[in-house]
Design a protein around this nucleic acid. Structure first.
Lengths: 334, 334
DNA sequence: GTGCCGAAGTCATACGTATGACCTCCGCGG
DNA sequence: CCGCGGAGGTCATACGTATGACTTCGGCAC
């Protein structure tokens, strides 16, 4: 009768008639010449038979590391961050690491006095940047789309290039008065995008909004009610673009006939509503950041990649769609 | 000069001039009469000064538990599951537990031979049900919206009630031929919804689809191309409803004039596209499941709650909207 | 026959915490 | 003056693993 407590390496050793050290050496696979093939096989068989699994707590204590990485993002309900998680988790799993999520501070309004778990490293979005200074001990850290001069290694998007493509596209459609629906994400992101945009459209008019449909709606209403109403709205986030869409329609404006609208991220929402957007490769962001963190943990200096963003042109800026009045909620006619 | 290794309780003890046991007893707070107030304060001050944090690995090893719960969901990129996570994580945090996510098997196609982490319990969506049997040792488990007769404690949605509301709503609008766009989520969910629907609409016609816009589109095309074309489509998921919406428009059908469409979940997509849907309280699902798991861990028998679902009526079934032809992607005119 | 070396293991210990068992006073009742 | 009990601690140990130090033994060269 098996005890109700899980078998330990000591149990395996006893059952196989060897010492606990031997079990550990066999199963870790790190000691090529120390154990004969026959003994090794016997140990493996016994471990398998007893259903032995190493106790992670004991291993962590002994080794002083946990092979666990913490991902700090403001929210996991946003598809963008969920994709970041997927990308990072996949790379982590491939290297024998696990990834835990810490959503802060938007969802769980708790003080962040460091992770409760023992972690080996950390990936953090720029929104969490300020709070990280409160941590007790420095932890290997890679930042996600944050200020590259902030000290920690960073993975960024090519916002410059994206804005160049975006404004070029709008210019080619004849747009001159352009509005900027800026997202209150964090200071650096805001400044980065605003600067990249203003470098190309000096007289851009800007409104800020929290990332939600209703906030986007209200900010867009202000922009679109101006005397010199913009003919194109660049939104920092797809969610804001949806709000802007609503605002345009509330004002009786046709999209894209009267006003063109663009977003950022390319979440499913943008696809469903046929909104032109800048696709930010969130999953690659997570994956690259995790690779950088692995570099860091191995004593190497991680690269600081800049990931290309891709302009996805859809109906909300389509010149042809401007002719055919949109006649329904989704998709192009036919 | 502080060492580069984090301070241990032994360090605190040395600095405070007491024994390590005393430090442990003070900081755990479990030994009321064993330490004088003065000594206790001295220990707390010293710990604070040194920035002492208990080593989680050592504590886990000693106590034989980790205060970590694993949430097993097919994907975290779906807003529904992300909300489940938030609800569960909040309750977990309130009780000093952490929650780690394991997405399986859709996103990470790896064999699931039990969690790598040491966990105290598990929350699993019904999609992961089959695979759980492969686990080595039974772990306290609460299932999410799964077969209540499956053995493990379960938290469910009131699908019966939801279907009753939904069909009642459609009936009152005069719909008689109703189609069912069923989601290939998992066997139990499918059967549960199909049964609840057929109990009220015996002659419902059903098509199955994977959860994506394109699959929903194709399945809806099949349903809407029938000779006895349904006048209403009940979709098991908002994403499918979006696909159905596209299909309707591709066929030149007006929504809701020619065909009414409903979804499930009430994700932001449904709100943006003004789709009538059944709001499933995902966050409450996660929270309730975590509470049940805490019961289980404390030796109590958890309840098996059935959470009410709420019918959210929007434009895609609105009788008034049937009069005014939809004239744009988002929102009602004006 | 003796010395030596490598192969194949075992032994002992440390990681940091929590806790039952023990120990040492001091005050007090008899 | 002795015993006793409780307050206020300390001591020792166990949790399960990984690994450096040590042991044993057979084979082989000299």
């Amino acid at each position: 009768m098996p005890a109700d407590t899980p078998p330990t390496s000591k149990d395996v050793a006893a059952a196989a008639g060897v010492s606990q050290s031997t079990v550990s050496m066999v199963l870790s696979g790190k000691w090529p010449g120390r154990v004969s093939a026959r003994t090794a096989q016997k140990v493996r068989d016994t471990a398998e038979r007893l259903g032995y699994r190493p106790n992670p707590a004991a291993r962590n204590l002994r080794l002083g590391r946990t092979r666990t990485i913490m991902l700090v993002v403001p929210t996991i309900t946003a598809p963008f961050f969920a994709s970041v998680y997927i990308g990072a988790a996949r790379v982590a799993a491939e290297h024998g690491f696990s990834l835990v999520v810490f959503t802060w501070p938007l969802e769980l309004d708790m003080p962040f006095d460091g992770p409760q778990e023992a972690i080996d490293g950390m990936l953090a979005s720029s929104m969490a940047e300020a709070s990280l200074s409160g941590m007790r001990r420095p932890v290997p850290l890679v930042m996600l789309d944050s200020d590259p001069d902030g000290g920690a290694p960073t993975v960024n998007f090519d916002i410059e290039g994206a804005m160049e493509d975006l404004t070029g596209h709008l210019f080619s459609l004849g747009h001159r008065r352009i509005g900027h629906l800026a997202a209150d994400i964090d200071v650096w992101t805001f400044q980065c995008r605003a600067a990249a945009l203003e470098a190309r459209v000096p007289d851009v008019v800007t409104e800020r909004a929290a990332i939600s449909i209703t906030d986007g709606f209200e900010a867009a209403m202000r922009l679109l009610s101006r005397a010199d109403r913009p003919t194109a709205l660049i939104c920092d986030d797809d969610t804001l673009a949806v709000g802007a869409h609503k605002a345009a329609r509330a004002l009786g404006l046709d999209v894209p006939g009267d006003v063109a609208i663009t977003g950022f991220d390319d979440v499913v929402l943008a696809e469903a509503l046929e909104i032109t957007t800048v696709r930010l490769p969130a999953e690659r962001l997570g994956a690259q950041a995790m690779l950088g963190l692995l570099d860091l943990l191995n004593g190497r200096t991680p690269p600081r990649p800049v990931l290309p963003a891709e302009l996805v042109i859809r109906r909300s800026t389509s010149p042809s769609a401007a002719l055919t009045t949109g006649s329904g909620p989704v998709g192009q006619p036919g």
